[in-house]
Every structure is written in C-alpha cells, then in structure tokens.
C-alpha cells in the first residue's frame, strides 16, 4: 500500500505524459481540432491528481509551513530584480526544494510559486502550464533525490540546465496545441524556435545557479530538514536530580 502511495506520482506523470505524446500520433481520431481543448484539460487533470496526492498524505504543520515558504521564495524569485532583470532563480529554488524535501513538497512548492506569483502579476492562460511545469520540475527533482540521493553538483547542474529547455517545451505546448494546425514536428520546431533563446538563457541561468550555489543551498535545506522531525524523550533520572 505504502509502495503504491509512493509510486502514485511517478505513475500518474508517466501516464499523462504518455497520453500527451500519443495524442500527437493519433490526432486524426480527434479531428485534429480538439487538442486546443484537450491539452489544457489534461494539464488540469494532472494538476488535480497531483493536488489530490498532496491531500492524501499526512502532513504536519511544520511541513505545511515550510512548503509554503519554499513556494513563496520561488515566487519572489520570479519578480525581476532591478540590477539583474533577466535572472530569475525560481526554477532553481523549486529544484533544490524538491531535491531535499521530496517529490510531493517539490510539486507543491513549484505549483504554489506559479499560482501565487500570478495573483500579483496577473493570471493568464499560462498559469496552469506554469503550475504544471514548475510542479513537475519540483517533482522530478524529488524523484532524483530519492533515486540518487548522492547526486552531486555535476549531475544536478545538468539536470537544472535541461529543465530550462523542458520548461520551455511545456510552456510552448499551449501555444502549439491551441493555435497551430496540424500538430506535427515541423510546426513544433517552428513554435519552439521562437522561444529558443529565451529558454537557453533560462537553462544557463539555472545551471549557473546550481553550479555556484546549489551545494550550499542544499546544505541549508538539509540542515533544516532535520528540524522537521520531532522526537520526545523522557528526562533521565540523573538529570532530573541535577536540575533540582
């Protein structure tokens, strides 16, 4: 049972991603037109599923507070900083949160960052896709943390770098599925080309952040994670006498 609960996330994600990929191959079945509607539906379904997963587990008040904080920090990372307008460490923050606190926390931090920052910056059709993309970044980093807990700086730097492009891919999906026809690889490449430089910048920024500050930030989070567990011991008799 515990196994299934743990594996629910990876399975759900694989299932939805599979559905997305399959859809491109068999779009004739759906008259080709339907994907503008179906893609957001799938994304929203995926989000619902992932939130449902968060609702099912047991979460202590400490975890709720920490997850919310990590999400807020990532959201603050989206706000352009006067001296460095193009550098936004949101993805980096989400990845290290997931890596240290696990897939569930990673997803919540990522999707929270997207939704909450958009409360202030303005919601748009991109909101669910951003929630999904960052949520997935956090989840996948969490899975990395479980499978390769010793993943070092190099591996995670490459991982963060790839997420720059992957993030762009996911964000392009909505323009592509909604407004381009037919859905073939040529049209996808054309859509992607438009955002290529932006994504390269994003990926490089992620990699730079992880390369330079990943290990120290991860250390901070790991040091803090230990404080989340509460252990209660009785006072040893000897001590008690000493105290009196």
């Amino acid at each position: 049972m515990a196994f299934w609960r743990k594996m629910l996330f990876p399975f759900a994600l694989v299932f939805i991603l599979g559905l997305l990929l399959a859809s491109i191959k068999i779009n004739a079945l759906l008259l080709g037109q339907g994907w503008g509607l179906l893609a957001p539906v799938i994304i929203i379904m995926a989000l619902v599923l992932l939130y449902w997963g968060f609702e099912q587990g047991r979460v202590s008040s400490r975890e709720v507070a920490v997850i919310a904080m990590l999400g807020t920090i990532a959201a603050v990372g989206r706000v352009p900083f006067a001296a460095l307008p193009n550098i936004q460490p949101a993805t980096f923050m989400v990845i290290i949160s997931g890596f240290v606190f696990g897939p569930r926390a990673g997803f919540m931090a990522g999707s929270t960052a997207a939704l909450v920052s958009n409360f202030f910056l303005g919601q748009g059709p991109w909101t669910p896709w951003q929630m999904f993309a960052w949520g997935l970044a956090g989840t996948s980093a969490g899975v990395m943390g479980i499978i390769f807990p010793r993943a070092g700086k190099k591996v995670m730097t490459v991982f963060s770098f790839l997420w720059g492009y992957l993030f762009g891919c996911i964000m392009n999906l909505w323009t592509w599925t909604g407004f381009v026809h037919p859905l073939n690889w040529q049209s996808f490449v054309a859509t992607y080309a438009a955002s290529f430089w932006f994504d390269t910048f994003h990926a490089t920024g992620n990699a730079a952040f992880y390369l330079l500050f990943g290990p120290s930030f991860v250390k901070i989070l790991q040091r803090f994670r230990r404080k989340l567990e509460v252990t209660l011991l009785p006072v040893i008799e000897g001590d008690k006498n000493a105290a009196l």
Binding site: F54, E55, V64, A65, A68, G71, A113, L115
Partner: peptide, 11 residues
C-alpha cells in the same frame, strides 16, 4: 482540498 488551499493562502 483544504490542505493545498492552506499552503496557497499562506504563500
């Protein structure tokens, strides 16, 4: 989803 809503409103 009370717990998710709590995380969101806290953030």
């Amino acid at each position: 989803a009370s717990r998710s809503a709590l995380v969101l409103s806290l953030a």
